[in-house]
């Protein structure tokens, strides 16, 4: 079976004042229909850039796909026309964002904002689009949806706004849903509800989900496969169970060590919380021929600062970009 989405040797460059930085550096992965793949990493590691590239929404003028391809159903999105991209966006691939408070247009009713997608892609008439929008709002568990559809975003709570975003994104039953930190801005109790909702809806629509997060707990809960990113590069890739039980990259290990709850459930003991010392490299350090994690790594050796690590495939699904992958 060929993958629904396959990204090959993707390199994205961003113009900064200091020069051109490769915010995504040689990234390859694939996504199968209906599965959930998670991208994990700290802020600035390029997770969101990957998402924006798949959407064809890289920051205009300053960001571009320098090389590589993004194949959706065999069609290279990076070479698609604007017109074709607009057909895909919101219809085949859609996205929900981190900030529900600012991601909805404040001057249109939420019903209109959902209905608009249906009119655009499903060619529904005004009335049909509106009633479908109400159904969608109902399905994301907005109470009293028929009346609420006439509300404006400022009249809704953050959790409700994110539900509206989800309704909007799933309106056309997309093949892929990209969720960029969808719960970071929300209360912890609301977070769980949103993930439940996403899983339920995924079961109905069969959409594949790309879940972008910095939260290992989220990954453990929702994803089947995961990709750990650091400074624009994939450092580890594999099935969630494999990676979490036996990380093959010191950075992954560090990320897991930061989450108390996760460690407790996984090992039934209470290991000490660890931290990853040091800071993320600046954009000007991106793209060096070295392991970019070296400065924060306790396994660092001569080789690490001299060459970019080769990816090592393990027996199971795991793939690690570390010179010392075996000894992690």
């Amino acid at each position: 079976m060929s993958a629904l989405l396959s990204v090959e040797n993707l390199r994205i460059e961003l113009d900064t004042r200091a020069g051109v930085a490769p915010v995504i550096d040689d990234l390859s992965f694939s996504l199968n229909a209906g599965e959930t793949l998670s991208f994990v990493g700290e802020s600035g590691c390029g997770k969101s850039m990957t998402a924006l590239a798949i959407m064809g929404l890289l920051p205009e003028k300053i960001g571009r796909v320098a090389s590589g391809s993004i194949l959706f159903n065999g069609e290279d999105i990076t070479k698609a026309s604007d017109e074709r991209l607009r057909e895909i966006r919101g219809n085949d691939i859609s996205m929900i964002f981190q900030e529900p408070m600012t991601s909805l247009n404040p001057v249109f009713t939420i019903g209109e904002q959902v209905a608009e997608v249906l009119r655009r892609h499903q060619k529904l008439g005004r009335k049909a689009a509106w009633s479908t929008a109400v159904e969608l709002l109902n399905s994301v568990r907005i109470p009293d949806a028929a009346r609420r559809a006439k509300s404006y975003p400022h009249q809704l709570s953050g959790g409700q706004r994110q539900r509206v975003m989800i309704a909007m994104a799933l309106a056309c039953k997309p093949r892929i849903l990209i969720a960029d930190e969808p719960t970071t801005a929300l209360d912890v109790t609301i977070q769980a509800q949103i993930f439940d909702l996403l899983e339920d809806l995924q079961a109905q629509t069969g959409s594949a989900i790309i879940m972008i997060t910095h939260d290992m707990g989220v990954v453990a809960e929702i994803a089947e496969r995961m990709i750990v990113m650091y400074a624009g590069r994939m450092v580890e890739h594999g099935n969630v169970d494999d990676v979490l039980s036996r990380p093959r990259h010191p950075y992954t290990k560090g990320l897991i060590g930061c989450v108390p709850h996760l460690m407790a459930t996984l090992t039934d003991s209470r290991p000490e919380l660890t931290e990853i010392s040091g800071i993320v490299p600046g954009l000007n350090e991106f793209g060096q021929n070295a392991c970019l994690f070296a400065s924060r790594c306790n396994l660092v050796g001569q080789q690490c600062v001299q060459a970019r690590p080769k990816e090592k495939q393990f027996e199971n699904t795991q793939l690690s970009a570390c010179w010392h992958a075996e000894s992690v």
Binding site: L57, L85, G90, T102, L104, V117
Partner: peptide, 10 residues
């Protein structure tokens, strides 16, 4: 952000 959303809707 909401213009980005509008773009993401196609």
């Amino acid at each position: 952000d909401y213009i980005r959303t509008a773009k993401s809707k196609g």
